[in-house]
Protein backbone atom coordinates (compact mmCIF):
# COMPACT_ATOMS: atom_id res chain seq x y z
CA UNK A 1 0.00 0.00 0.00
CA UNK A 2 1.03 3.60 -0.43
CA UNK A 3 1.30 5.70 2.67
CA UNK A 4 1.30 9.49 2.59
CA UNK A 5 2.39 11.44 5.64
CA UNK A 6 4.33 14.51 6.71
CA UNK A 7 7.91 13.94 7.71
CA UNK A 8 9.86 16.83 9.18
CA UNK A 9 7.55 19.32 7.52
CA UNK A 10 7.58 17.79 4.05
CA UNK A 11 4.84 15.74 2.37
CA UNK A 12 6.25 12.30 1.68
CA UNK A 13 4.94 9.08 0.27
CA UNK A 14 6.21 5.54 0.37
CA UNK A 15 5.13 2.00 -0.29
CA UNK A 16 4.87 -0.36 2.66
CA UNK A 17 3.17 -3.55 3.69
CA UNK A 18 0.56 -3.64 6.40
CA UNK A 19 2.92 -5.53 8.67
CA UNK A 20 5.85 -3.13 8.31
CA UNK A 21 7.05 -1.16 11.32
CA UNK A 22 7.22 2.59 11.08
CA UNK A 23 10.86 2.49 12.24
CA UNK A 24 11.81 0.20 9.36
CA UNK A 25 10.02 2.42 6.87
CA UNK A 26 11.77 5.52 8.22
CA UNK A 27 15.19 3.85 8.42
CA UNK A 28 15.01 2.36 4.93
CA UNK A 29 13.12 4.96 2.96
CA UNK A 30 14.19 8.15 4.74
CA UNK A 31 17.70 7.55 6.13
CA UNK A 32 18.37 11.30 6.29
CA UNK A 33 15.88 11.47 9.18
CA UNK A 34 18.37 9.48 11.26
CA UNK A 35 15.77 7.18 12.84
CA UNK A 36 17.28 3.85 13.88
CA UNK A 37 15.53 0.50 13.89
CA UNK A 38 17.87 -1.62 15.96
CA UNK A 39 15.85 -3.68 18.40
CA UNK A 40 12.35 -3.63 16.88
CA UNK A 41 11.02 -4.37 20.35
CA UNK A 42 10.64 -1.00 22.06
CA UNK A 43 13.81 -1.43 24.08
CA UNK A 44 16.67 0.64 22.75
CA UNK A 45 14.87 3.91 21.97
CA UNK A 46 16.82 4.71 18.82
CA UNK A 47 13.55 4.92 16.92
CA UNK A 48 11.74 7.59 18.96
CA UNK A 49 9.86 10.20 16.92
CA UNK A 50 7.11 12.70 17.51
CA UNK A 51 3.89 11.46 15.93
CA UNK A 52 1.23 14.16 15.90
CA UNK A 53 3.01 15.80 18.81
CA UNK A 54 3.33 12.67 20.93
CA UNK A 55 6.50 10.73 21.59
CA UNK A 56 6.31 7.21 20.18
CA UNK A 57 8.70 4.31 19.76
CA UNK A 58 8.26 3.93 16.03
CA UNK A 59 9.29 0.26 16.06
CA UNK A 60 6.05 -0.41 17.93
CA UNK A 61 3.91 1.55 15.47
CA UNK A 62 2.56 -0.24 12.39
CA UNK A 63 3.39 1.70 9.26
CA UNK A 64 -0.26 2.02 8.20
CA UNK A 65 -1.00 4.05 11.34
CA UNK A 66 1.15 6.88 10.05
CA UNK A 67 -1.11 7.62 7.08
CA UNK A 68 -1.98 11.31 7.22
CA UNK A 69 0.04 11.84 10.39
CA UNK A 70 2.82 14.31 11.05
CA UNK A 71 6.15 12.82 12.06
CA UNK A 72 9.04 14.83 13.47
CA UNK A 73 12.35 13.04 13.70
CA UNK A 74 14.81 13.79 16.54
CA UNK A 75 17.28 15.20 14.09
CA UNK A 76 14.72 17.67 12.70
CA UNK A 77 13.57 18.58 16.19
CA UNK A 78 17.17 19.38 17.14
CA UNK A 79 17.14 22.03 14.40
CA UNK A 80 14.10 23.82 15.83
CA UNK A 81 14.41 26.72 18.26
CA UNK A 82 13.19 24.48 21.08
CA UNK A 83 15.63 21.73 20.14
CA UNK A 84 18.52 24.15 19.88
CA UNK A 85 17.81 25.56 23.33
CA UNK A 86 17.83 22.05 24.81
CA UNK A 87 21.07 21.21 23.03
CA UNK A 88 22.57 24.45 24.32
CA UNK A 89 21.43 23.53 27.83
CA UNK A 90 23.07 20.13 27.49
CA UNK A 91 26.27 21.79 26.32
CA UNK A 92 26.19 24.26 29.22
CA UNK A 93 25.81 21.38 31.68
CA UNK A 94 28.59 19.40 30.00
CA UNK A 95 26.37 16.49 28.96
CA UNK A 96 28.70 14.30 26.93
CA UNK A 97 26.13 11.98 25.35
CA UNK A 98 27.17 10.04 22.25
CA UNK A 99 26.23 10.76 18.67
CA UNK A 100 23.73 7.91 18.69
CA UNK A 101 21.48 9.03 21.52
CA UNK A 102 21.92 12.81 21.67
CA UNK A 103 19.14 13.69 19.18
CA UNK A 104 16.69 11.37 20.93
CA UNK A 105 17.58 12.73 24.34
CA UNK A 106 17.20 16.30 23.11
CA UNK A 107 13.76 15.47 21.74
CA UNK A 108 12.68 13.82 24.99
CA UNK A 109 14.00 16.70 27.07
CA UNK A 110 12.24 19.23 24.85
CA UNK A 111 8.95 17.42 25.21
CA UNK A 112 9.43 17.14 28.95
CA UNK A 113 10.01 20.89 29.22
CA UNK A 114 6.77 21.55 27.35
CA UNK A 115 4.99 19.25 29.79
CA UNK A 116 6.53 20.67 32.96
CA UNK A 117 9.50 22.99 33.12
CA UNK A 118 9.99 22.12 36.78
CA UNK A 119 9.97 18.36 36.26
CA UNK A 120 11.34 16.41 39.20
CA UNK A 121 14.60 14.50 38.96
CA UNK A 122 12.65 11.25 38.96
CA UNK A 123 10.40 12.42 36.13
CA UNK A 124 13.42 13.47 34.07
CA UNK A 125 15.08 10.10 34.58
CA UNK A 126 11.87 8.21 33.81
CA UNK A 127 11.59 10.10 30.54
CA UNK A 128 15.25 9.60 29.66
CA UNK A 129 14.88 5.89 30.37
CA UNK A 130 13.14 5.66 26.98
CA UNK A 131 16.60 5.60 25.43
CA UNK A 132 18.85 2.78 26.61
CA UNK A 133 22.35 4.00 25.95
CA UNK A 134 25.22 3.62 28.38
CA UNK A 135 27.18 6.65 27.25
CA UNK A 136 26.27 9.21 29.87
CA UNK A 137 25.83 9.33 33.62
CA UNK A 138 22.20 9.94 34.70
CA UNK A 139 23.04 12.93 36.89
CA UNK A 140 24.37 14.72 33.81
CA UNK A 141 21.02 14.29 32.08
CA UNK A 142 19.25 15.89 35.02
CA UNK A 143 21.72 18.76 34.98
CA UNK A 144 21.26 19.08 31.23
CA UNK A 145 17.48 19.40 31.44
CA UNK A 146 17.73 21.88 34.30
CA UNK A 147 20.27 23.92 32.33
CA UNK A 148 17.91 23.94 29.35
CA UNK A 149 15.14 25.31 31.59
CA UNK A 150 17.48 28.06 32.79
CA UNK A 151 18.51 28.90 29.28
CA UNK A 152 14.94 29.15 28.03
CA UNK A 153 14.09 31.34 30.97
CA UNK A 154 17.05 33.61 30.30
CA UNK A 155 16.05 33.93 26.68
CA UNK A 156 12.45 34.68 27.54
CA UNK A 157 13.28 37.19 30.30
CA UNK A 158 16.68 38.56 29.30
CA UNK A 159 16.51 41.46 31.75
CA UNK A 160 15.33 39.45 34.73
CA UNK A 161 17.82 38.67 37.47
Amino acid sequence: MTIDFILDGADVSCRARATDRLSDVLAQEFPEAGVGSDCRAGRCGRCVVLMDGKLVLSCLVPAFRVRGAEIVSPRAYARTEEGESVAAGFARAGVAACEFCTPQRVLIAGLLLEEAAGASERRILEAMQTVQCRCVEPSALVRGVRAAVELRSERKWPHAR
Binding site: L125, E126, M128, Q129, Q132, R134, E137, P138, S139, L141
Partner: peptide, 15 residues
Amino acid sequence: YAGYRLMPLTAVPPI
Protein backbone atom coordinates in the same frame (compact mmCIF):
# COMPACT_ATOMS: atom_id res chain seq x y z
CA TYR B 1 17.49 -11.21 25.16
CA ALA B 2 13.95 -10.46 26.29
CA GLY B 3 14.82 -11.05 29.93
CA TYR B 4 18.01 -9.01 29.99
CA ARG B 5 17.57 -5.95 32.17
CA LEU B 6 19.74 -2.88 32.53
CA MET B 7 19.47 -0.90 35.74
CA PRO B 8 16.75 1.75 35.33
CA LEU B 9 18.06 5.31 35.54
CA THR B 10 15.64 5.94 38.42
CA ALA B 11 17.41 3.24 40.46
CA VAL B 12 20.80 4.96 40.25
CA PRO B 13 21.73 6.32 43.69
CA PRO B 14 23.68 9.52 44.38
CA ILE B 15 27.37 8.97 43.58
